[in-house]
Amino acid sequence: MEQKIGFGIDVGGSGIKGARVDLTTGEFIGDRIKILTPDPATPAAVADTVRQIVEKAGWDGPVGITLPSVVREQTALSAANIDPSWIDTPVGEVFGDVLPGREISVLNDADAAGIAEARFGNPRAARGSVILLTFGTGIGSAFMVDGTLYPNTEIGHMIVGSKEAEKYASSAVKKKKDLSYSTWAARVTEIMAEYERLFWPSLFIVGGGISRKADKWVPLLDIRTPVVAAELRNRAGIVGAAMAVTDHIRP
């Protein structure tokens, strides 16, 4: 099989990371490049950091970029852990100005993780109705049916009981409150049970940094739907971004 190479960049609240991706295997080619997210993380500052990563990599092809934002028609409609000035920013134009003459695709970071997991992760991610949840500073989500993405779901912001889900059960909350895995898993069960009641997926996939320790908390979840840990972990955003621009996906 001929090797197909793409380039993805994952914009996060603390770091901006990019790499070449082998789109036949989902593996990185060469080293991942990381630069700290500028403060404030304005569109101009982030775009300049993206330019630096692309130049440092010596990449001259299409670039896929994730943002912690709802992205519709290549416009950011929200901003999580980046500057509020992103809201209503035409992101395709912002990145196109610093990377002229090449195709750019911008999409939500959890959505990127979802499509990457469906292609290169657990085979079950590409079958049936699947919800991927990323536990980190917040709770990101990606909905897929037979591997096809329904973009820009934001169920981490749902009110479950009396609280916003991600302010009750993100991994950041676990760390801040120094919760044991069992106590935190009980909170995660509450929100996932509500998601289950409303959406009835065939599978939940849990990602984010805390998924590396899935054996400590996934078995404690008490819901009917099967739950598995994401396999791509911190590669998922970059891989999904590279996939998006190569496949001409532009939400």
Rank of each mutant, 00 (worst) to 15 (best):
Y150L: 15
Y150C: 12
Y150Q: 14
N152I: 06
N152Y: 03
N152Q: 05
N152C: 05
T153I: 14
T153P: 10
I155V: 12
H157G: 03
M158R: 02
M158D: 06
M158E: 07
M158G: 01
M158A: 05
I159M: 02
V160P: 00
G161Q: 03
S162E: 06
E164H: 05
E164N: 13
A165C: 04
A165W: 10
A165Y: 11
Y168A: 13
A169K: 06
S170N: 05
S170G: 10
S170T: 12
S171N: 11
A172G: 02
A172M: 07
V173C: 04
V173R: 14
K174S: 11
K175H: 08
K176F: 09
K177R: 14
D178I: 09
L179T: 08
S180V: 08
S180D: 04
S180W: 02
S182G: 05
T183C: 07
T183W: 00
T183Y: 02
T183G: 15
T183S: 14
A186L: 12
R187F: 14
V188K: 03
V188D: 01
V188Y: 03
T189E: 01
E190G: 02
E190I: 13
E190D: 09
E190H: 07
I191F: 04
I191M: 04
M192A: 03
M192R: 00
M192T: 09
A193L: 10
A193N: 13
E194Y: 08
E194P: 07
E194I: 04
Y195A: 05
Y195Q: 03
Y195C: 04
E196L: 00
R197C: 02
R197T: 03
R197A: 09
L198P: 02
F199I: 10
